[in-house]
C-alpha cells in the first residue's frame, strides 16, 4: 500500500513540477529560448505573494490574484529589456544574459528578505492540512488534488488559447516561422512579449504552490529551474502536453526514489533525466580521434 501512496504523492509532486515547467515550455516553444532565471522568477512570485499576505492578512490564493498583474508587467519588462536584445545575437547570449539575471534576482531577494526560510503553508488554511483517509495506509491530501486539478486546468486553458483564439494562432504562427508571420502582418515583438508575460505569470503560480506546499528562500530558484527543465526535456522539448507528462514522470521518479531511500529523491529524478537524454540522443556517432 505504501508504494501506491508513493505513486499518488509522485503524481501530486509531478503536477507541481508541470506548473513550474509550463512557462519554460512556452518560452522555448515560441522563442526557442531557455530562461535560466525561470526558477528565480517563480521564487520572486512567491515573495510578492508573501509580501501581500504579510501586509493584508488575506489568503495566499487571493493574494496571488492581486500579484498577477505585477508579474505580468514584470514579464513584459523582462522581454523588452533583456530577451529581445539577446534574441538577436546568437544562441549563447540569452543563456548568458538570463544567468546573470538569475544571480541578480537571488541576491536582491537576499538583501530584501534575509536568508530566512519562509512558507505560506500556515496562511493557506485547511487546504494544506486536510486529507481524505481512503484506507489505513492511503490518504489523499487536499492540496495535492488542488494542485493536480489546477495543473490540468492551466494546460487545458493554454491548449484552448493556442487552438481557438486569434492571439493563440498568432503565437503558433510566430513559433513556426517568425519571418513568415511578420510577412502576413503579425507583430512578432508583441507576440514574444505576450509569451514571456504568460510564462512569468504561470511561473508565479508555480511559486505560489512552492510556498504553500513546502518552504522557500532567496536561493531556491536554481533547484526549481533544474526540476522544471528536467520536466520539459523528459516530456519532449516544444510539446506542451509533453511537459505535463514530463512533470508527472519526474515527480514519480523522485517519490519512488525517496521510497527506497529518502536521500535518493533528487538523484533518481536526475538519473531519469540523463537516461532520457541518452535514449533520445544516443543514436549519434561517437568520434574521438581522426575518424570523420
Amino acid at each position: 500500500m505504501t508504494v501506491v501512496n508513493a505513486v499518488l504523492q509522485g503524481i501530486f509532486l509531478g503536477a507541481f513540477y508541470a506548473v513550474l515547467a509550463c512557462g519554460l515550455s512556452i518560452m522555448f516553444g515560441v522563442m526557442r529560448v531557455i530562461n535560466l532565471a525561470h526558477g528565480d522568477v517563480a521564487v520572486l512570485g512567491a515573495y510578492v505573494v508573501f509580501v501581500i499576505v504579510q501586509g493584508t492578512g488575506m489568503s495566499p490564493f487571493v493574494a496571488f490574484v492581486v500579484a498577477l498583474p505585477v508579474m505580468i508587467l514584470l514579464g513584459y519588462l523582462l522581454q523588452l529589456t533583456i530577451l529581445e536584445r539577446s534574441l538577436k545575437s546568437g544562441i549563447l547570449t540569452p543563456l548568458l544574459a538570463t544567468f546573470g539575471l538569475s544571480i541578480v534576482i537571488q541576491n536582491l531577494l537576499l538583501i530584501t528578505f534575509s536568508p530566512d526560510v519562509r512558507s505560506l503553508g500556515e496562511n493557506a488554511g485547511a487546504v494544506t492540512t486536510s486529507s481524505w483517509q481512503v484506507t489505513s495506509g492511503l490518504s489523499v491530501s487536499t492540496l495535492g488534488v488542488v494542485i493536480l486539478v489546477v495543473a490540468v486546468i492551466v494546460f487545458g486553458a493554454l491548449q484552448l488559447f493556442l487552438s481557438r483564439t486569434r492571439a493563440g494562432w498568432m503565437m503558433r504562427a510566430t513559433a513556426e516561422d517568425s519571418d513568415a508571420a511578420e510577412l502576413v502582418g503579425i507583430d512578432s515583438r508583441g507576440v514574444y512579449a505576450r509569451a514571456t508575460a504568460l510564462a512569468v505569470a504561470v511561473a508565479a503560480l508555480g511559486g505560489l504552490f512552492l510556498a504553500i506546499r513546502s518552504v522557500f528562500d532567496p536561493v531556491s530558484g536554481p533547484t526549481q529551474l533544474i526540476f522544471a527543465f528536467e520536466a520539459v526535456v523528459i516530456g519532449g522539448m516544444g510539446s506542451l502536453w509533453g511537459t505535463l507528462l514530463g512533470g508527472l514522470a519526474l515527480g514519480l521518479a523522485q517519490t519512488l526514489g525517496a521510497h527506497i531511500n529518502p536521500e535518493y529523491s533528487a538523484l533518481t529524478g536526475h538519473l531519469l533525466f540523463l537516461a532520457v537524454l541518452i535514449v533520445r540522443y544516443g543514436g549519434g556517432r561517437v568520434s574521438f580521434g581522426t575518424a570523420r
Binding site: F28, V33, I34, L36, I91, L92, L95, L225, I226, F229, E230, V233, M237, E263, A266, L267, H270, L271, F273, L274, L277, I278, Y281, G282, G284, V286
Partner: peptide
C-alpha cells in the same frame, strides 16, 4: 560522450545536472 550530444541550453543545464549528481553521490 553524454554531454556533447547536447546543444546550447540542453548542454548548459545538462552539465549542471551532472554536477548535481556527483555532488549528491
Amino acid at each position: 560522450f553524454l554531454a556533447l550530444r547536447l546543444r546550447a541550453a540542453q548542454f548548459a543545464i545538462g552539465m549542471w545536472v551532472i554536477a548535481e549528481v556527483i555532488s549528491i553521490l
